[in-house]
């Protein structure tokens, strides 16, 4: 793969709204992404990707048969591609496993803020929109280049978490799951497309360990009430109180560091937060 010059990535900005320009930009970035493994660069030779070339409409149909790549089972997932520094070449095994998941990670603001806070834990963002995922991936690639020792613990995957979460994670593997500013799906007949439903919560409970936490935040009050109600009604979750929220650093990060969160703050919008702890299974269940 040919080396990519920094200038090549600076697509003229005037007509950047033009779809083909965006595509061109993304393709250059892709060349860079693919070439990165073989070509050496000067330090900081590459700048952070620009969001405007990756914009995609904010909705995606979770029921459609997207052409997704996902492992057939958690054991067949090759995590070393995503977290190369956590792979032990000699033992041929990962030294750590994903413990924190940001479902619908969007442009990756939360991932990046969490990276340093939990530098010893692997954090995975899942996003269903292709271009947005590419953006996050490019962003992480650049951050990793800029600071060799940081951001090795975060990665992003394009996927449909509502369908294929159990293909990625073992029972009780996760300690934290984030649902930040999810698609509100206002119409009643679209409610099943919401990321929090009573039936999906059972799947989240499966991948969360006992004592693990589900974090939700939204700027839509209706959606907040819906999420809180469904979580409260689920026998495997218990709401964490205001006091807990105030002392938890993740709540603070989640409120202030996601792109969507910042946008809401800029517009002086309100944010609703609800966090829930995973309770143990009933004794009579396997």
């Amino acid at each position: 793969m040919a080396s990519v010059d920094k200038r090549d990535l600076n697509v003229p900005t005037a007509e950047a709204s033009n779809e083909s320009k965006k595509k061109q930009y993304r393709e250059k970035r892709k060349d860079f992404r693919d070439g990165q493994k073989n070509v050496s660069f000067e330090e900081n030779a590459i700048e952070l990707p620009r969001k405007r070339f990756y914009r995609q409409r904010a909705h995606s149909n979770p029921f459609s048969d997207h052409d997704l790549a996902y492992p057939s089972r958690p054991d067949s997932m090759d995590w070393s591609q995503l977290y190369p520094q956590f792979y032990d070449q000699e033992k041929k095994a990962m030294t750590s496993h994903v413990e924190i998941a940001d479902i619908g990670c969007g442009y990756g603001g939360l991932l990046i803020s969490l990276a340093k806070e939990f530098s010893d834990k692997l954090i995975l963002g899942m996003e269903i929109r292709v271009q947005v995922t590419q953006y996050v991936q490019d962003r992480i690639d650049v951050l990793r280049r800029q600071e060799e020792d940081n951001y090795q613990n975060i990665a992003v995957l394009r996927g449909n978490a509502m369908k294929f979460l159990p293909n990625f994670f073992h029972k009780g593997q996760l300690s934290k799951m984030f649902f930040c500013f999810p698609d509100p799906h206002f119409k009643q007949r679209k409610h099943k497309a919401r990321i929090i439903t009573s039936t999906l919560l059972s799947e989240y409970a499966y991948v969360l360990r006992v004592g693990g936490v589900i974090y939700t935040i939204t700027d839509v009050e209706d959606l907040h009430n819906w999420m809180a109600q469904h979580l409260e009604e689920h026998p495997l979750f218990q709401r964490l109180d205001k006091e807990w929220e105030e002392q938890d650093k993740c709540v603070c990060i989640m409120t202030n560091s996601t792109e969507e969160g910042k946008k809401v703050s800029r517009n002086n919008g309100r944010k609703w937060i609800a966090c829930f702890e995973r309770l143990p299974n009933p004794d009579d269940c396997d």
């Binding site: 057939s72 089972r73 369908k163 294929f164 159990p166 293909n167 029972k171 009573s198 919560l201 059972s202 799947e203 409970a205 499966y206 689920h234 026998p235 495997l236 299974n281 009933p282 009579d284 269940c285 396997d286």
Partner: peptide, 23 residues
């Protein structure tokens, strides 16, 4: 999709596991 889910019954909100093998 390729999933077979094993849940407790009637407490079906407790998922016991998945059978992975179909493609």
């Amino acid at each position: 999709d390729e999933h077979i889910r094993v849940s407790n019954y009637p407490k079906s909100y407790v998922i016991k596991g998945w059978l992975y093998g179909h493609s």
